[in-house]
C-alpha cells in the first residue's frame, strides 16, 4: 500500500470509529435518532449526544492522536522502539499535578482545577528535564533526566496517596489514574485542544531532524540538524501533547508505545512518515479501545487505561517476539 493510501485508510478508520463512538452507549439511542439529536441538541437524546458522547468521541480521537504522535517522535528521537511518550516524565508529573488537585479538594470546588494542575505538573517536569539534561542535544542525558523526574513524580504521587485523608479519597485518586474518557465535557475538549494543537504543530515539524537522526547524532549534525533545537522540540512538543492528554484523560498507557510499532513497517520505517500515520493510528486505537470499554462491561465503568494496558501488553510481547525472530 502506498503511503498516501495508508494515510487515507487510517483517516477513514478514524472517521468510522468516531461515528461508532457517537452511536454506542448505554442510553440505547437509535442511529438515525442519535445523529438527529446530535445536530438539533434537543431533548434527552440531544443532551446525551452533546454533553456525553460528543466530548467522549472527540477526546478519544484527539488524545489518541496526541499519544500516537508523541510516541512516534520519542521513538524517533531516541532511536529506540521501546521509547514511549511518558519516558521523559511528563505524564507522571501531569498525574502528580492532578492527584494534588484531587487530594486538596481544589477540584471539588472548581472542576478545571484538575486539568490545570496536571498541565502545571507537566510544565514543571519539562523545566526540570531541560535543566537537568543540560545544554547540547544528546539523548542519553534526556533519558536519565526523564527517569529521575518520573521517579520523583511517582514517589510524590505515592506520598499523596499515603497521606490521603480517607479510603474514598485514595480510591478516587487511584481510579482517576487508571485513565478514562467517561464524564468529560466539551469544556475539557476546549481546554485540551489548544495545547494538543500547539504540541502537534511542534512535533510534526521535527520530521527532517528525526530522519537525519537515523544515522546517529554526529551524522545528523553534519546534515545541518541542530540537536539542541530538535531535543527542545521533542521535549516541549510531547510535553504539550502528553501533558494535555493526561490532564483530561488520566494515564492512558501503551498507545504511544504500540501504535508507532504497528505502523513502522507499513510506512517504510522513515520517522517523518511515521509521525502523521501514528497520529491517525493512535486516534483509531484509542477510539476503538474506548468503544470496547462500553461494549465489554457497559455497567461497570471499565477504565480505558486498564483496557489499553490489558490489550497492549500482550500485543507488545507478541511484537517483541516477532522482532526477536527476525533478528534485528
Amino acid at each position: 500500500m502506498s503511503y498516501r493510501a495508508l494515510l487515507a485508510a487510517l483517516a477513514a478508520l478514524v472517521v468510522v470509529l468516531t461515528l461508532a463512538s457517537l452511536m454506542i452507549g448505554p442510553a440505547g439511542i437509535g442511529w438515525s435518532e442519535a445523529l438527529r439529536a446530535l445536530v438539533s441538541g434537543e431533548g434527552a437524546a440531544g443532551l446525551v449526544m452533546r454533553e456525553i458522547r460528543l466530548p467522549r468521541a472527540l477526546l478519544g480521537a484527539m488524545i489518541g492522536a496526541a499519544l500516537g504522535l508523541s510516541g512516534a517522535a520519542m521513538q524517533g528521537f531516541l532511536r529506540n522502539p521501546l521509547a514511549e511518550p511518558g519516558l521523559i516524565g511528563t505524564s507522571a508529573s501531569a498525574a502528580l499535578g492532578a492527584v494534588i488537585a484531587i487530594q486538596t479538594g481544589a477540584y471539588a470546588a472548581f472542576a478545571l482545577a484538575l486539568p490545570l494542575a496536571a498541565l502545571a505538573g507537566a510544565g514543571v517536569a519539562v523545566a526540570l528535564i531541560l535543566l537537568l539534561s543540560g545544554p547540547g542535544g544528546r539523548a542519553l542525558t534526556l533519558i536519565l533526566a526523564g527517569i529521575a523526574v518520573s521517579a520523583l513524580a511517582g514517589a510524590l504521587t505515592a506520598l499523596v496517596l499515603n497521606l490521603a485523608p480517607s479510603p474514598y479519597a485514595a480510591a478516587e485518586i487511584v481510579f482517576w489514574m487508571m485513565g478514562s474518557l467517561a464524564d468529560r465535557s466539551l469544556t475539557h475538549v476546549a481546554l485540551a485542544a489548544p495545547f494538543l494543537l500547539i504540541g502537534a504543530v511542534i512535533v510534526l515539524r521535527l520530521g527532517r531532524g528525526l530522519d537525519a537522526l537515523t544515522l546517529g547524532e554526529d551524522a545528523a549534525v553534519s546534515l545541518g540538524i541542530s540537536l539542541g533545537r530538535l531535543r527542545l522540540g521533542v521535549v516541549i512538543g510531547s510535553a504539550f501533547l502528553v501533558g494535555a492528554s493526561t490532564a483530561v484523560a488520566g494515564a492512558v498507557g501503551f498507545v504511544g508505545l504500540v501504535v508507532p510499532h504497528l505502523l513502522r513497517r507499513a510506512v517504510g520505517s522513515r520517522p517523518s512518515r511515521l509521525l502523521p500515520a501514528s497520529a491517525l493510528g493512535g486516534a483509531a486505537m484509542l477510539l476503538a479501545a474506548d468503544i470496547a470499554t462500553r461494549l465489554i462491561a457497559p455497567e461497570r465503568d471499565l477504565k480505558l487505561g486498564v483496557l489499553t494496558a490489558l490489550v497492549g501488553a500482550p500485543f507488545f510481547l507478541h511484537l517483541i517476539r516477532r522482532l526477536g525472530r527476525e533478528g534485528e
Partner: peptide, 22 residues
C-alpha cells in the same frame, strides 16, 4: 562518522536519500 548507525529498517535508497536533506 566511524560509527555506522542505521537506526530503522529503511530501504537502502531511502537511507542514501537522507544525504539530500540539506
Amino acid at each position: 562518522p566511524q560509527s555506522r548507525e542505521i537506526a530503522w529498517g529503511m530501504s537502502v535508497r531511502e537511507v542514501v536519500a537522507l544525504g539530500r536533506l540539506p
